[in-house]
Each structure stands twice: as structure tokens, then as C-alpha cells.
Design a protein around this nucleic acid. Structure first.
Lengths: 344, 344
DNA sequence: ATTAGCACTCGAACAAACGGAGTGCTAAAC
DNA sequence: GTTTAGCACTCCGTTTGTTCGAGTGCTAAT
């Protein structure tokens, strides 16, 4: 038994309908909808075939059919009509970006908000990893005795604060001197390539503080890696709008899952190498997203992969629409981030 | 009709029981519970009186009674036995603070987390306002042409980053010079007291950049005021555990409300002047918290009011327990924050 | 003043009845 | 040989009815 054109058309119609209504689609109602050229009986027969082939499932006898994950897969890969954003929508989208011109972090947070508000699903954005970026400026600022604030600016414009321990005999002037020395020596290097040898090779009073400097630089990288704020989450509660989550327990599980920054981080990190990904239901590795689908896109600046962002919704999400929104955001983001690095 | 001792005892028992069970308390079950010296009939009569007096309400005839807001008010003001934290609990609480010694912001975020995890309610923490604090260090760090990152450190240890516009002809050296000049001149002054006259009175090349410096300083204050991250929220989804929120719509409303940083900010700001506040049900001004109660405490450092924090829970929250946790946190916080300012 | 007893009330929980939407199958129509 | 109309059947969701238990108010006895 093969998937002939009629089966495909019917399957697509079922998926389209189910994405809208969230309730099982029956042969009769389907045959009444416009541009359905066949009677309910024919559709019934085809539906039975599609069920044997694994594309449809029946919640129970005498209910309509709902698409299986296999059907969504097929839909996404071969059947989906690429949605087209209306002018209004793309203007709306642009609006979010115009609002914030204040720093890369703000732009990415804004992105998360835009995505969640426009799609009505949940959005996650992976903040760029500091390790691959090049150091541009390091400034140590004295706080209290034994502690200082380290501010790192990279070519990506990402800045990061962390409180670090400093030797007690290190005064404000020395902090400033070290800041300048590091900025001069390592400006332009990748954050992750600074090793103790490189530090020792420096002359002057920096040499005798070599251990401190090395600890400082590695701890900055580690700090960043552990910093859970690398994933920006927005619109988690949007999911409560969907009948899929009218059960409070399901909602609770979902919210608990997406609020685990760690697993969101892993998910987005893995997706940073791919232009787009669509992960449907149980294809998700994350426990707790098995009833959801995740669509991600990655963003690049000057060809360098920077990070990724995605939308999480119910399995019956509107893939076509989400994909076109993501692709729109992807290019917007590319342009805007580029402008932060223009002098490179 | 007066509230004699017996009525008070019965009322307290009802409130205690309802806080635990969340379901209407009947005369019979109450009379069977330990240390109830009266028969169900007597309790019934008293309950009827208490209902007339407005302390109890009946969801419907032939159901038990539930406490009214008036009853909670009385309970909190006059009847509540102050709960005592077990050693385990207070150790647990201390643990949260020991974890993070990294900066004041981290401590306060940690506080929010501790509060929500230990109470199982929702916690909010107001970050200290930068305006009343004294400037300790200002550092301008070049980003791209025309933009710089301003990092402010105050005596409170609060640091704040914002991206600012700078004149195009201002190079890294000048930024550094200005940073030092401002730090020298205004170190120790309140952020909000820097006026244009003070700026002009400075000699040297700072004078010709007076406009810039003034704009800079005021915009830093404004930025902070607008920055919505001044309120740290934690454990909002804890509320889904309670039967009060087994209806998804109620849950949605609640979540939407507490995620509005603005209104949480107003609420906590108002509470910063009070040692403790307990706001019950409709006493809340915030639309959407009318079915909740909010308990707050303020924290001070060196007698200076700094900010406040609070717990939001269902009206039947365990006030005694929450209050003793808050008071514990209050003193912990005082001690820890003090240590950040010890060299003052 | 307190309490035992009783008739009454109401909601939650369970069961039976019903209607609707859907199905599979068969036989007629194209 | 497809396609479709028709029919009997299934099963869910809703409604209706019934029971059960916990609670109440009132009265009379303690």
C-alpha cells in the first residue's frame, strides 16, 4: 500500500484541521469542509489505510482520527506549505527589535519575548558562549577587601560580571594595572586560549601575579558556563492556553521542565550547528517535553555560529507559521548583531 | 454578642484546621479532634454565632464553615501562636546563604529561591534601589564606536551595567580618565545628588564634558528605575500544588499577575518602610492577588532601609510559619549584607 | 449552660439513560 | 473497479436519578 496523492491530500487536511481544533477529525466533518472532493465514505476508507500505515491514530473506536508523530514528521518534511508572514506581522516583529538597541543581551532577551508573544508558544534563546569570543576589554573593579568585580567585554559585545576573590594585598591601582595589562596582551585572543604559559611570558609585575591572572581567566570562563542565565526563557505560561494543558499536573510538569535551564541549554547547544531543527514529540530527549515539539533556528554573525533560539509548543503546533517566523527572526538577528560588531 | 474565650478557641481551631486541609471544617470532625473540650452541638451553636459575627462563612448549607478574611485578620493580629523553626529548617535556610557569597545580587536571588523552596509558596525580593546608595566606583568601558558600558559599584556592592551613548570623539583613554575623575569626585555621594552644578565645578577636561557626565549619571539612575529586573521572583509555579489553583484559569491569572514586575515592585516598595506586613485577600490592591495573601518583611543594613521581600500564598497560608521564616531570613540577610559593607 | 437526638439539606460519587459523532461494512451506483 | 449511500454498531460526554455521608438547626433532656 502506497501513499498516493489522495492519501497525502487527506492526511494534510487532517493535520491542518487538527492543528487548529485540537480535537479528533472525523470523516464526515472533513468531507464537508471546502476543497474536499470526496465523500465521507471514501475518506473513511483512506483514513483506515492511513491508520494501518501508522500516520493516524484513533483515541478510541468511534472517535475521529488524530495525526501520529509520524504524520507530523511527514508533514514537516514533505507536505507543509511554507506560511507567509503578513506585512503586519513582520512589522510587529521588527518593532520588538527596534525597541532595544541597548546591548546584545537586551536584543536577545527581546528576541525571546518577541517570539513568545507572536507565536503564543514558549520561546527559548541561547545566549552566545563567551569562550569562543575574543577578549576586547577586561576591567577589574574593587568591591570590598579581598573581592573585586570582573567585567569582561568581548568582540561580540557580550559583557559579563562576576565577583572574584583577589589577594588581600592587591589595591585598586594594581587592579587597574592588571586590567590594562591583560587587555593589552590578550585583546583579540579567544577567551579559552589563555594558558598559564602565556601569562608567565608577560613581563613586569603581572608575572608575579601569574597564578592569580590565570585563575581569574579560567574562572571567568567557568563562571559563564555555569551561569544559568545563558538561556533566556519567555512565555512559558502561554502553554496554559492550550487544551493540552488544561490539566494542572501536565502544566506543572511542563513548566518545571522548561524552567530547568540546564536541559534547555543542552537542547539549544545541540541545535546551534543546524540552520533549523524540528523535533517532534518523543523525538525529544528531554524528559517532560515528550508531548511537545521544538522548532529551533541558529543565528550566526559573520558566518560564525553564535547561538540558537527556539519555540516550544504542543505537538500539533503550527509548524509552517513557526518556521517562517523563526526564519524571519534569524535574518533580523543576523543584521542587528552584525551592527554591534561593525568595526571589526 | 462578644467574642469570649471559647469562641476564640474554636475559631482558632477552625483556622488551623482549614490551613492544613483546605476543606470546610464541620462541627463534628472538629469536636473529635484532640483538645476540643466541647460537644459537636456546642460547637455548632458557637459556629452559628461566629457566622453572624462575620468570622465564618458557609460555602452552602450543610457544608462545614470556612474562615472569612476577617477571621484571618483576627488570627494574624491576635490569635496566632508564633511558630518555631526546627533546627533542621533553620540550618537548611542558612545553607542557601552559604552557597552564594558572590555579590549582593546573587545573595538576594538566593534569598528568593530559599524562601520559595522552604515555604512552598511564591517568593518575591525587591532589589535595593541604587539611588539612595553612595557611589564607590564608576567605570566606563568602550564597546563600539559611540557606545560604552557603564559599570556602577555602590557602597551596597550593587553593580549595574548599562550601555550608554558616548560622543564619537571620545576614546578609551578619555573614558578611563572620566571614570577616574567621577570616582574621585563623587565617591561617597548619593547617586541621586549629582547635579550639573557639581559637575561643572570640576576642573580639567571633565568640565568641557559636563553635559555628557550629567546625562550619564542621571540616565544611570533612570535606567535602574526602569529596569524591571529589580524584582526577583521565585517559585511562581509552586502555587499549582494547591487545590485553590487546580483550575487552570485561576492559575493563569495568578501567574500573569506575579510576572508583572511593575505591580510586584509597587507592592514591595510600599512594604519597605514596614518591619512586617500581612495583607489578606481583598486587602491587596493588585488586581489578581485578591484571592491570595502576601506577607512581607523589610531588610535594613546599618539601620538604612534597603528593600523588602515577601511570600505570596493562598489566603489560607500558614501565616505563623511564614512569618517566622521571614523574620529568620531578615536577620540572616542583615548580617550577610553587612559583611559586604564592612569596610565602610 | 450543655449536650444528645432527630429530621432535614445539600453536594459528591456512582449508575443508568440518551444523543451525537464517528466507524466499518455491504451493496448499489457510476 | 471505484466511489458512495445506507445501515447497524460503538463509544464518549452529558444529563438524570439515586444513594450516602457529613453537616446543620432545633428541641428536649440532662
Amino acid at each position: 500500500m502506497e501513499l498516493d496523492s489522495r492519501k497525502l491530500q487527506i492526511l494534510r487536511a487532517i493535520v491542518d484541521e487538527y492543528i487548529l481544533s485540537a480535537s479528533p477529525v472525523g470523516s464526515k466533518s472533513l468531507s464537508q469542509s471546502s476543497d474536499m472532493k470526496w465523500s465521507s465514505a471514501t475518506i473513511r476508507n483512506e483514513m483506515a489505510d492511513l491508520e494501518v500505515l501508522g500516520y493516524l491514530a484513533q483515541p478510541h473506536t468511534s472517535a475521529g482520527r488524530i495525526p501520529s508523530e509520524k504524520a507530523y514528521r511527514l508533514y514537516v518534511d514533505r507536505m507543509m506549505r511554507r506560511a507567509h508572514l503578513s506585512d503586519e506581522e513582520s512589522k510587529l516583529l521588527m518593532g520588538y527589535f527596534r525597541e532595544h538597541v541597548n546591548g546584545m543581551d537586551a536584543v536577545l532577551r527581546s528576541t525571546a519575548k518577541a517570539l513568545s508573544e507572536i507565536t503564543h508558544y514558549t520561546a527559548v534563546v541561547l545566549m552566545p558562549d563567551i569562550g569562543v569570543n575574543r577578549l576586547k576589554h577586561l576591567q577589574l573593579i574593587p568591591l570590598v577587601e579581598g573581592k573585586a568585580l570582573a567585567v569582561v567585554v568581548t568582540d561580540a559585545g557580550v559583557s559579563q560580571n562576576s565577583v572574584i576573590d583577589i589577594p588581600f594585598d592587591m589595591g585598586p591601582e594594581e587592579l587597574d594595572r592588571i586590567s590594562k595589562a591583560i587587555t593589552n596582551r590578550f585583546g583579540g585572543c579567544r577567551m579559552s586560549t589563555v594558558s598559564s604559559e602565556l601569562v608567565r611570558e608577560l613581563g613586569g609585575d603581572l608575572a608575579c601575579r601569574a597564578d592569580f591572572v590565570e585563575t581569574l581567566l579560567t574562572s571567568l570562563c567557568e563562571n559563564q558556563a555555569k551561569d544559568r542565565r545563558m538561556v533566556e526563557l519567555s512565555g512559558a505560561t502561554n502553554m496554559l492556553e492550550f487544551p493540552e494543558y488544561s490539566d494542572v499536573n501536565k502544566a506543572k510538569t511542563f513548566l518545571a521542565t522548561v524552567e530547568q535551564r540546564d536541559s534547555m541549554y543542552r537542547m539549544l547547544k545541540k541545535a546551534s550547528n543546524m540552520e533549523f531543527t524540528v523535533t517532534i514529540g518523543s523525538e525529544n530527549e528531554q524528559e517532560g517535553l515528550q508531548d511537545c515539539s521544538v522548532v529551533t533556528a541558529s543565528y550566526r554573525v559573520n558566518g560564525q555560529p553564535f547561538g540558537s533560539f527556539g519555540v516550544i509548543g504542543p505537538t500539533r503546533m503550527d509548524y509552517a507559521r513557526v518556521l517562517s517566523i523563526l526564519s524571519n527572526v534569524q535574518s533580523n538577528l543576523g543584521t542587528i548583531l552584525q551592527s554591534y560588531l561593525k568595526e571589526e
